[in-house]
């Protein structure tokens, strides 16, 4: 593989060093800095574990973690349940020549600004927003419902985003499936329902798991959607982290909370690592 010539040893390192140096300097080093910071006291320097113990002893901090996990779990489940049939319809019911267009349309709002998308939901769900005005207009409810600044709003905003993301991944999965699997199942006597249950679903399961994990990671680390739609009634972890920086400039505590959040994601990854492996014949 290696090439002859006097630069054969220097060249490869010259190619990969800039990227490696960038990663070390601006990713690994910050992480170390954050780790060290999390072990120092906010007021004047010395080593302490107080930032971590604060998380484990203060129930309001705990509550934020529980909220994060609950919201993430709800969002992941609802998004998959909504996206799978939708992706299936796009891949199987829509005529081949319209599929690209149908898919592109289905994920068009995916490409809008993330901040703007959350704001748009605020327009829909606000006290005097579209939903409340419509419902009061037709006389279904007398008083406007409290929709914005609730967990419901956060979940709705998240589900909107992840339905699009999961539709993309599940659609790709369904299309990758060789049509001869389905033909073989039909040939051997399986009807549409059993072909789906015994062949299509199990074969797309690994793809669903990858999508679910992606949803989990992006959802639990997101600050924007809960801040705009959920408000401050019920905090999740990223809001708690930002709050330490914004209000009090408490970098050590923010660092500790970030590391705890990352640890949870890592544990989740290790827990479902065996599901994330893609097995192919």
């Amino acid at each position: 593989m290696a090439f002859a010539g006097n630069n054969s040893r220097a060249l490869p390192w010259a190619l990969v060093t800039p990227a490696l140096a960038w990663t070390l300097l601006f990713f690994v080093l910050p992480f170390i800095a954050m780790g060290l910071s999390s072990l120092t006291a906010h007021e004047g320097g010395g080593f302490t574990l107080a930032n971590y113990s604060q998380f484990f002893t203060d129930p309001s901090y705990w509550r934020a973690m529980v909220n994060s996990l609950e919201v993430t779990a709800i969002v992941t489940v609802i998004s998959i349940l909504l996206a799978y049939p939708f992706a299936w319809i796009l891949a199987e019911q829509v005529p081949e020549r319209w599929q690209r267009l149908a898919l592109m349309l289905a994920v068009l709002p995916f490409w809008t600004s993330y901040v703007v998308r959350s704001y748009s939901w605020l327009l829909v769900l606000a006290q005097n927003g579209v939903v409340n005005r419509t419902l009061t207009g037709i006389g279904l409810i007398g008083e406007p419902l409290q929709l914005a600044n609730t967990r419901f709003a956060t979940v709705t905003g998240f589900v909107h985003f992840f339905v699009m993301l999961l539709t993309l991944t599940i659609f790709a999965n369904l299309k990758q499936l060789s049509p001869s699997y389905r033909k073989a199942a039909a040939d051997l006597g399986a009807g549409p329902v059993r072909t789906f249950l015994h062949v299509v679903l199990p074969l797309t399961l690994s793809g669903i798991m990858v999508g679910a994990f992606l949803t989990f990671v992006l959802c639990i680390g997101d600050y924007i959607t809960p801040q705009i739609l959920g408000g401050n009634n019920e905090l999740v972890m990223p809001q708690l982290v930002m709050m330490q920086i914004g209000r009090r400039g408490d970098f050590p505590l923010a660092s500790a909370l970030s590391i705890i959040l990352m640890a949870v994601v890592t544990i989740a990854y290790l827990a479902c690592a065996r599901w994330l492996k893609i097995e192919r014949a």
Binding site: S178, S180, Y181, K183, A184, D187, H198, V199, P202, E279
Partner: peptide, 14 residues
């Protein structure tokens, strides 16, 4: 009363 052996075999990998 026919069954097919597919070119790519189409064995269910799972």
């Amino acid at each position: 009363p026919t069954t097919t052996v597919f070119q790519d075999y189409a064995l269910f990998p799972h």
